[in-house]
Amino acid sequence: MAKKRTSHRVLPGFGLTFGFTVFYTSLIVLIPLAGLFFLTSQMTWAEFWAKAVTDPRVVASYKLSFGAAFIAAIINAVFGFLVAWVLVRYSFWGKRIVDALVDLPFALPTAVSGIALTTLYAHTGWIGQWFDSFGIRIAYTPTGIVLALTLIGLPFVVRTVQPALEDLEAELEEAASSLGATRGQTFRRVIFPAILPSLLSGFTLAFARAVGEFGSVYFIAGNMPYKTEIAPLLIIIKLEQYDYHGAAAIGVVMLLASFTFIFIINLLQAWSRRHQ
């Protein structure tokens, strides 16, 4: 990022743009979020605790949402790194298309990827029937949820690791190799440590995104209480029963998780900037 050459009020428009920005941000983000905390504050502590923390169905949904998101983020860390590596280091036919395809989950509506994955990996689907012959069911099980979350999180890892790999100087590796390091040693001691901060940022971004994901999971999950029911779905179920307090309680817990993720991601990105 370039040096800050921002001027002190030489340019016009501060009042107008700053005023509108604050007004619009308050209207769309701040006030609605404050409303959620306001509704939650009307509950007694005991009621909040019972609805958000100790209800076994809610606890099961947290475990599933966070657990599946964590596994998907790990899969993405491995395969996202691989994809980024291949795209930066090697040339092969169709590389530009693959590079563009990585962004697909950003642009593809989640409901669309949801129905496509479900149809593909159901036990009668093109790929699902193949797994089914080995006795592995993917759709309507936690495995299916992990699959959907992997698709959603993939671009986050690839797009954070890719620039870090590109910035890596070839001289470093050449030096390592001329000093007698094997390719494996160079990777472990030189390349991987330099990429690690970006990889962790990408992992956390994918994890954070997957925890809150709804559209793609909703179709493939099967949505069985205690088994394949994610936390965002439980919020919707509570709202449909007009249990606003129950929905808000789970919502506040998930919001606090989001805030924690934002904090961790900021730390990781500061770390990776120092590394550069």
Binding site: L36, F214, P232, A247, L255
Partner: peptide
């Protein structure tokens, strides 16, 4: 960073 479901929830609330 916020779940889309929560984006809907805050307006229902």
């Amino acid at each position: 960073a916020i779940s889309p479901v929560i984006a809907g929830l805050i307006f229902v609330v």
